[in-house]
Design a protein around this nucleic acid. Sequence first.
RNA 1: GGCCCUAUCGUCUAACGGUUAGGACACCAGCUUUUCAAGCUGGGAACCCGGGUCCGAUUCCCGGUAGGGUCACCA
Length: 449
Amino acid sequence: MTVITRYPPSPTGSFHIGSARTALFNYLFAAHTGGKMYLRFEDTDTARSKREYEDDIREGLQWLGITYELPGVFRQSERTHTYRKYLEQLIGKGLAYEAESSDTEQNKKVVRFKNPNIPMTFNDLIRGDISFDTTELDDFIIARSIKDPLYHLSVVIDDYEMGVTHVIRGEDHISNTARQILILEALGFPRPLYAHIPLILAPDRSKLSKRHGAVSVNQYKVEGYLAEAFVNYLALLGWNPGGDQELYSMPELVEKFTLENVQISGAIFNIEKLRWFNKEYLKKMSDDTFGKGALPTLKAAALARGFTWDEKIAVRLLPLLRERISIWQDITKQIDEGEYDYFFYDPRPSPADIPHAGGDKVAASAHLLAMLHTLQGISEADFKNPDIIKRSVWEYATANGRGDVLWPFRYALSGRQRSADPMLIASVIGKEAAERRLHAAIKILGTAS
RNA sequence: GGCCCUAUCGUCUAACGGUUAGGACACCAGCUUUUCAAGCUGGGAACCCGGGUCCGAUUCCCGGUAGGGUCACCA
């Protein structure tokens, strides 16, 4: 039997995290078993469904690397004639009937399903047997009118016509399953296999929703998360193959994914861990790939900050950035906060802050002068390498107290109490700028005394 | 409230009757570093409660409690 799963979002909102994970699990299961996954849009609620949401969902799927197949007609709104055929069949057999609508103005007749009122049990691949007493469902409504079907009806018919073998969906659908099985048995369809996966929860353990902040997948893309990291994190939220491995590529996930290893209780979405995953994937990138990803963000942020764009400085900044960010947007945030101003502008150090230990301006001045001489002795070529600068400076710094030497050195270059180390700064801004800044600091100290 | 599902560190989880209950994130400390960040090392931190079954229960069963889901002419 070829496995066929389906991902059936209703395009009434943007692609969100929980929906993405459902899609991922369906994809993973189908790929693992050599089957396929269909995408179809459940837009029987035509008032709320929008094409822009369809696009958002498809773009999100593509970004995450989740592939799918489309059934011939993939919008339920375009299949009403099909649903009507089955509806008439049901009514003809006395298994459903038309009844007055509560919406008296419309003067429509809704279609109610004739509930056989039987106890029912279905097997859930993840949770085992689940039983319901269907009596309490009453003769529930399956269509607003003969030509206007409702969700439960259309789902059952589509799953049947598409040959869906496994229905993998959120556990919020458990109680829907009873209704759907009732309909499908009335229609004479075989039951698919069901697997209800746990919900993704907000920190307060309620179902994750908009009010909890960022839930749209696109938002994470915009903030600069990597698709691989996002998928990795999502996969491990509610699924675990056992063992201590945390990092899985999509092919590895496909290879290892089984329904048996899906968790049964809900999992809280934790942004910190997601960020950690992202940082791990950032670390694994080649310098080239990292540069391609970081530079556009860096440029936009730098320009917005009013910097003159200097590609050379930017490229030399890359290694520092790689250590300090978890997602691309951290670059924007750090630039906005002025963290890297000193790479683009000469700082204006305050005289009182230049000396470190004991406020000894004379000593600080002497140390800065020594640093200046040292830098002057380094060639332009060697200046590109912070390690060479460090070697040149280290002997003097060690002999005279690293703190006493390096603090004023760093502060003269950055104008900040906290910054990258002076050798790196010097290397990034270049020989000329470094010497200019030291000159300026020495001069300020002289004037101040 | 009815029905359904669930229950291991704060969080994500491993364990499939016998373990000093393991890992990761977060947190704390130490190292390294002039500072910040990163990195390295170490540390604290959990089997919801009560009954069974069993030589032995975190693990199986029942009950309680707690949390969640669902009760639309939405999906």
